[in-house]
Amino acid sequence: MNIAVLLKQVPDTTAKITISDGKVDENSVSKWSMSPYDEYALESGLQLKEATGGNLIAITCGPERAKKMLTDAAAVGADTLVHISDDGVSDSTHVQKLLTAAVKKFDSHVVLCGKQAADTNGGSTGPGVAELLDAACVTLVSEVNFSEGNFTTIRPSNSGTEKVIVNGLSVFAFDKGSSELRRPNVRGIMMAKKKPVESITSGDLGVNLDPSNVKMNSQNPPPEKPAGQKFEGAEYVNEVVSKLRNEANVI
């Protein structure tokens, strides 16, 4: 089975984000990491590969720096590393088209990805790729297993969890998965170093990136937290309780 895992490199969740001229300043990001939900997808992909055999294809669309994340994926067991240049990419529909073309190019039987990227939180990649592939799509999954030609997935439902079974070409978008991404080891790291990253462009994939209908006006930092308030003495008890109840909503 060819298992495609779609990955995105995002600022590490601990990295400080600065905005300059209405845009996130990427140069000021101290650490880039694999988006956390994608990590769950990758781990599930590795488990699927171990259970069924096959080839795990790690695909990303992004700038040069994203290749490092593919090498990290190889260190834990990704077999084929595909980097699609993001030249000319200006919105998520472009990304979906490119990823879809790569998924096809590598004859993938199943596609795993995170439910949303930790930076843009768009959440459109999984459903978007599924639509273009004309594939089944199950979102917010925590687990994907394969047996007798079917994929069995677990996802939340109104009353707890539900089991969804699909077959054929399918896309699974991961919420927090049931197992964390495994730690690499020295052997994996040394093998990853030898694994080439296949670099392709929209031209190589035969994808025409139409002019985008989406315009990003500006990005803004979240509003600063209001300053803390200090109360001293028993006479403030009623006021504090009321604030905790009505403003902070914690009691």
């Binding site: 090498t71 690499p184 790291i189």
Partner: peptide, 14 residues
């Protein structure tokens, strides 16, 4: 080297 940094990050995370 990149390999040395990957080993560093592995041990550091652990």
């Amino acid at each position: 080297t990149e390999e040395e940094r990957m080993v560093r990050d592995m041990v550091r995370d652990w």
